[in-house]
C-alpha cells in the first residue's frame, strides 16, 4: 500500500502515455489541406516544449535554492533537470523538423522560432562547458547555478518575445492560426491536455532517476 501511495503518479503517467499514443494516432482529427495527418504532431511536438519549459523552470528553482543554502544536493538536482530538459528540447527539435519537411517542404527553414530554439540549445550547451571547466566542486556549483538562472531569463526572452515581433511561418505566430482554430469540436483538446500531463510526468520521472544516480555517485566519490 505504501509503495502504491508513493508511485501512483508513475502508473498515471504510463496510462496517460498509452492513451496519448493510442488516441494520438487513431483519434479523429480535422482534415485540412497541406496539414492533413501531420496535425497529430501537436501531441508529440508541442508537448515536448511544455515539458522542456517545466523542467528548465524547475531547474532554476533548485538553482536559487542552491544559492540560498549552498547545499550541494540542490546543485545535483538542478543539473539533472537541465540535462533532461535538453533531451526534451532535442526531441522537440527533431519532431518539429519532421513536421516541417512534410508541410513546409524542408527540414530546416529560416524561421525566427527555429533559430531561437537553436540559439537556446547553444546557450545550454555552454552551461555544460561551464560545469566542465571548473575544477573545484563548490565553485563549479556556484558559477553554473548563477549561469543557469541568467541563461533561463535570456532564453525565455528569446523564445517568448522575439518570435512574436517578426513574421513567422510557425503556427500560432505571425498571423498563422494555431490548432485551436481548427479544433472546432474540441476532440483534439481531449488528447492534447492529457498528453501535456503525460509527457511532463515522464520528464519528472526520468529526472528523478537521474537525481538518484547522481546522489549515489556523489556519495561514492565522497567516501573514496
Amino acid at each position: 500500500m505504501e509503495t502504491l501511495k508513493k508511485n501512483y503518479w508513475k502508473i498515471a503517467c504510463m496510462l496517460l502515455l498509452i492513451y496519448t499514443i493510442w488516441a494520438g494516432f487513431m483519434g479523429k482529427v480535422p482534415r485540412q489541406a497541406i496539414l492533413n495527418e501531420t496535425v497529430r504532431n501537436l501531441y508529440f511536438h508541442v508537448t515536448m516544449w511544455f515539458t522542456m519549459i517545466f523542467l528548465l523552470g524547475t531547474s532554476v528553482y533548485h538553482s536559487i535554492q542552491y544559492l540560498r543554502k549552498s547545499d550541494i544536493k540542490s546543485d545535483l538536482i538542478s543539473n539533472a533537470y537541465v540535462e533532461t530538459g535538453l533531451v526534451f528540447a532535442t526531441l522537440g527539435l527533431v519532431t518539429g523538423s519532421l513536421w516541417a519537411k512534410f508541410t513546409w517542404g524542408d527540414w530546416w527553414t529560416n524561421d525566427p522560432k527555429l533559430n531561437s530554439v537553436a540559439i537556446g540549445l547553444l546557450i545550454y550547451l555552454a552551461y555544460g562547458l561551464v560545469r566542465s571547466s571548473m575544477p573545484d566542486e563548490q565553485q563549479k556549483a556556484r558559477i553554473s547555478n548563477v549561469y543557469n538562472i541568467f541563461a533561463f531569463v535570456i532564453f525565455m526572452i528569446l523564445i517568448w518575445i522575439l518570435p512574436r515581433m517578426t513574421d513567422s511561418l510557425h503556427p500560432g505566430n505571425g498571423g498563422n492560426p494555431g490548432f485551436s482554430k481548427y479544433d472546432l469540436d474540441s476532440n483534439m483538446r481531449l488528447v492534447f491536455y492529457p498528453a501535456i500531463i503525460a509527457w511532463t510526468l515522464l520528464g519528472y520521472w526520468i529526472t528523478n532517476l537521474r537525481i538518484r544516480i547522481k546522489k549515489l555517485a556523489y556519495l561514492i566519490s565522497e567516501n573514496e
Binding site: 540559439i119 537556446g120 547553444l122 546557450i123 555552454a126 562547458l129 561551464v130 571547466s133 571548473m134 575544477p135 565553485q139 558559477i143 548563477v146 549561469y147 541568467f150 541563461a151 535570456i154 526572452i157 528569446l158 522575439l162 515581433m165 517578426t166
Partner: peptide, 29 residues
C-alpha cells in the same frame, strides 16, 4: 562568470555569443 574558469578567454567567447543574440537581433531590427 568566465573569469572563474580555467580557460577564461575561450569560455568568454563561447558563453557570450549565444547569450548576446537576443539583444543583437533587437538591435539589428
Amino acid at each position: 562568470i568566465a573569469a572563474q574558469g580555467e580557460n577564461s578567454a575561450t569560455l568568454m567567447s563561447v558563453l557570450s555569443f549565444p547569450i548576446i543574440i537576443p539583444l543583437l537581433l533587437l538591435l539589428l531590427k
